[in-house]
Amino acid sequence: MNGFAGEDLVCERGARIVFTRLRFAVGLGGALVLVGPNGSGKSSLLRTMAGLLAPLAGRLTWDGADVRGDPFAHHQRLRFVAHTDAMKPTLTAIENLRLWAALAVSIDERSTGEGNADTRCRHALAAFGLAALAEVPARYLSAGQRRRLTLARLLLAPSRLWLLDEPRTALDSDGAARLDAAVAAHRQGGGIVVMALHGGPYPDGARFLDLADYRAAATC
């Protein structure tokens, strides 16, 4: 099938099975929302989806093909936003984005989107309402502004799969609205989004994956 899917995933963290026999499937343009209590493995699942964590068992597929067959292709198609912001406080907002823009260029020479790296950085900043702060060093940004800057990384070049770990953390209502708009536009273009969320609003037509359903049985 087309899209992103996981089959019988088992995840182990420090000798503990976090979730087991987990399955999911998202079609093109789809959204998958991960819910579950703290420690249920939402972040671990996102990191597994990104390829940072190898699942103990099971496999991830893209359009039916195992993503481990071509990890670079998988890296090319995904954008990952974790809790950390990957910002250097001494660099300005736009300088922080430039490295990721450069890497996005080398990702896929054909579909880097419109304009050169600098314009793309400015577009991404504008989309999250940071245009006026482009030349401000990141250390002067507030937590919400830093979050916006982190999310702006998503828009540097088109990609197929967004993996977002609680993206609304620290965002105000304007920031959340801009995020929702970005997600909607991404899905409009056939992109897939997987996000861990604590509470709504949820994207239209989203599927839900409750990680509490996949806990390992507590037997010794």
């Binding site: 390829g51 974790a82 912001d85």
Partner: peptide, 14 residues
């Protein structure tokens, strides 16, 4: 490593 840059670099397509 602390600020998460390293994991994004590990996900870069090189």
């Amino acid at each position: 490593y602390d600020d998460g840059t390293l994991e994004l670099l590990a996900l870069a397509p090189l």
